[in-house]
Each structure stands twice: as C-alpha cells, then as structure tokens.
Computed example of a mutant assay.
Amino acid sequence: MSKKKPLSQGQLRRMRANHEKRLQRGNSDKNLPELQDNSLGPEQAGVVISRFGQHADIETADGQTVRCNIRRTIKGLVTGDKVIVRLALEQQSGIGGIVEAVHPRTSSLTRPDLYDGVKVIAANIDQILIVSSVLPSFTTQIIDRYLVAAEDTGIPPVIILNKIDLLNPDEADEIAAALQRYEDIGYKVFKVSSKSGDGLDAIKGLLKDKVSVFAGQSGVGKSSMINALLPDAELLVGDVSDNSGLGQHTTTTAKLLHLPSGGDLIDSPGVREFALWHLPAQRVGWCFIEFREFLGTCKFRDCKHGDDPGCALQEALKAGKITEDRFNNYHKIIASLDEQRHARYFRAATDEQ
C-alpha cells in the first residue's frame, strides 16, 4: 500500500481557517445578556442534566430542573458535571439561573475531535456499559475498540450482549466462547434481551447507586434497553434496516436520566462511535489489559509485535497467555490508526471549502 501524502501548506492553512470560523460561530451566543447579581438567590449545589450551547439544564438538590446561563469564565461544561448555581428570584425569558462554578471531576468521558483535540463529552461517570448484540452481527473487533477507548479514559467497562432472544443456536457456542475470553481476563459480562426482559434485573443491580453510560454501535439496542429500564425516558428507538443491517442513530443530545431502581444513566450521542486515531500505538497496547505484563519486555524497544525477533507478545501468544482473537484485533486497530488520522485531517483541511 502506498503512503498517504502529507497535508500541503495550503491544506493546513485552510484547516486552521476553518477552525477559527467554527470558534467564532461557537462564541456567537456569548453576547447574550446575563442575569444581574441582585436578581439571583443564594448559591446551591446542582448537576448538569444536559447542555445546550451557552445554556444548561441543571437539577438542584430539591429535584427541580432549571435552564441556566453559564458564566463566561466556565469552559467545557458537560452533562454529569457537579456545579454551583444561583437561581433567579424571577425567571426571565425562560432562563432560571446562572451556573457559577464547577466542581473537580472524578472522571471524564472523552472522544477525539478534529478541531478541539480530545473533547470531554460527559463527566463523573462510574462505569461504561459496552453494548453488543446478536443483530447487527456479533463481532469482538468492535468490542475491543470500545474496550481500548474505555481503558484509555480510566472508567471501568462492562460488556453487555443484547438481543439474546434472537440468538441463533448455530452461533451460540461461538459467541459464548468469545464472551468467556473476556471474563477470563477480568471483565464483567451480562446477557440480556430488552425485548423479553431476560437479564434486565441483573443490569438494574449493576446500575444501582452509580452513574453509567451506554456505548455501542447503532442498532445494538442501547435506547431500547434504556426504555426497558426507564419507560418514561421517551427515547426514540431506531430500527435496524432490513436491507443494510445497520442501525439508525437516534439520540441527539446528552441527557442524564434517573433510574427508578437506583442510579443514573447518561445517554449521549458522543459515545455512538469511539474513534481511536488520537492514540499512539503504545497506548493502544497498554489498553489491552492482559498485554501489560509483557509490554516493555521485548528484545527490541521498537518492537511492532509482528514477526519481530524476541517479541514478548508473540511468545505470550504461543504460550496461551493471550488469545489469538485479541492479538489479531490489536493489530487491526493499529493498522487502522494512520488511515483514520489521514482521513480526519484531510476532512478538516477541505471542510467548508
């Protein structure tokens, strides 16, 4: 395969110019008048339920949800942030208060962004529920990509196989063996059907007293599962196309939802697809948790873990200490990184021309 051409100086200039245009558009609503201090009540605690430009829906300790302005000094407020707010003594134009400050985050869910580098999309999350399903077809390669992204954030991942009511007996043993491999290296695995309700009680127990986020491809049933756990969520559910087998993405803005059985869910379009192009190859390897004890022990420091002599990962594979499936998926992810980076940067350079 021929090497991708580097970006020209002209493309880089256009990319920077497009970046500035986006920043200017993003700042256009910062000139909106803010509530005056003498019209606000005392400071109180709140949590961001959802974010809309320079406004955010804040839930206060007494359970009311108020749309608030955000102080211009606050950068990067996201769903799940714990904040200090002051509510208006009298509501003005639908705005009921101002977010004054943000507490330090215990965790940040991030994704790479062409213009902003690594972008935070949700905060203070206790676990990431990686949802796979029987339809679209089950694949460990997608699960491993999500696991890498989850490990990179430091937020514990849990694997969920949805739509088990559609499981074909011919593929049941193969899928069970694949899931067992994840359990063997320490990941929790659950099997559910949001349609029949099988396994949902176990998920309720998993979610209790925690802030969780669902991750997974379109069509795996994330919204259907949320609706089964919280019928009042009124989330749209996208059907899987009969022709393509691909799901239609339906969630449009991140929302924090309270579960009647305990715990909170953050439903966000930002985790529909975890891109990995911002990660160096060494970091990807570290995110395969069973590889960690072997990394750095290869004969050569620049070992690519292919047919390199003295490769510790190859030796671990032969000894049965790591599985062939995970080892192959690691190399597929590594092989995709350069192509993804080029595609992203080329799009940034040619966007809006």
Rank of each mutant, 00 (worst) to 15 (best):
F274W: 08
P156T: 10
S193D: 08
V189D: 10
H258S: 11
S50F: 02
L207P: 04
I143T: 04
A178L: 09
C298D: 13
E273W: 03
L276S: 04
D338Y: 13
T323R: 08
I58R: 01
A177P: 05
L135E: 12
I226T: 00
D308S: 02
R22T: 10
I130T: 04
H103E: 06
R72S: 12
C287R: 00
G296Q: 09
D126F: 04
I125H: 01
F300L: 10
A275G: 09
P136R: 03
V189W: 08
G306H: 14
R67C: 13
R272Y: 07
H19M: 11
S261I: 10
L40W: 13
S39L: 15
V148L: 05
K204G: 09
F291K: 02
Q64E: 15
A343P: 06
H103G: 01
F327R: 01
G310P: 13
G199N: 04
F138W: 00
K5R: 14
L77Q: 01
F288T: 02
G154S: 06
R13H: 14
K195A: 07
C298T: 15
G219K: 02
V134H: 03
Q180H: 08
G262L: 14
G97K: 01
D126E: 08
K222P: 02
V192N: 00
L147M: 04
